[in-house]
Simulated assay, not measured.
Amino acid sequence: MIQRIQTVYLILVILVTGILPFWVNLWSDASGNEIFAKNEMFISIAFYASAVLALVSILLFKNRQHQFVVNRLNMILNLFLLGFFVYRSLNLSGETLVSEKGIGMLIPVISIVFLVLANRAIKKDEDLVKSVDRLR
């Protein structure tokens, strides 16, 4: 389980989506207050759900097809988060000097990249198992 590269990618997803959004600000509002994931209930639930889905995917290491599907669901969740952040940043951009976008808005992109890498490694493992089954 731990020796597989997709497990390392999924652990990175857990760290990125479970811990990082609560240390890095997502944006600053008009009054200068930094908004973290813990300040917005929907965003914190979505980040925790992404971390839990990555953990479930690690625990499904014996069933690669289910692991692949759970990673796809996690990618869809992160795409929704990314879409929300893009919508939010378009609303913030109308205010010229009063609001700032934080680096935390890139967290779903980083998570999606690691999930794609994990799915690629899962597909490689599945192809390897199928090729070994053909030889029997």
Rank of each mutant, 00 (worst) to 15 (best):
I45L: 10
L53N: 03
G18K: 02
D29S: 05
M1T: 04
D133V: 07
S28D: 11
T96G: 13
F68P: 08
W27N: 05
K38H: 04
S44N: 15
L128V: 01
E34P: 07
I76H: 12
E40H: 03
Q65Y: 07
V116H: 10
F36E: 14
S131T: 04
G102S: 01
G104L: 04
E100N: 15
Y48I: 12
I103P: 08
N78I: 10
L117R: 08
V8M: 15
L60F: 14
Q65I: 02
P21W: 05
N63F: 00
A30R: 10
E40M: 09
Y9W: 07
K130P: 08
K38W: 00
A49H: 01
N91A: 13
S50P: 14
Q67Y: 06
V56Q: 06
V16M: 12
S57I: 10
N39V: 00
K123Y: 10
S89M: 06
L81W: 13
N39W: 03
L135C: 12
Q3R: 06
M41H: 05
S50D: 10
T96Q: 02
K123P: 04
P108S: 06
N91I: 09
V86S: 02
Y48A: 12
M75A: 14
A51S: 06
V116Y: 15
V113F: 15
V86K: 09
F22L: 08
I107F: 13
A37G: 05
N119Y: 06
I112W: 10
Q3T: 05
S131H: 08
D29Y: 01
K101N: 11
P108A: 13
L20M: 14
L135H: 11
E100G: 02
L55Q: 00
V132K: 14
L10R: 15
N74G: 01
R88W: 11
V129T: 13
W23A: 15
S99A: 15
W27T: 11
L55I: 03
I103E: 05
R4D: 14
Y87Q: 14
G94L: 11
L26G: 06
L53P: 10
P108G: 12
I45D: 03
D127Q: 14
I14S: 04
L60W: 07
H66F: 15
V52Y: 00
Q3W: 03
G32R: 10
F61P: 03
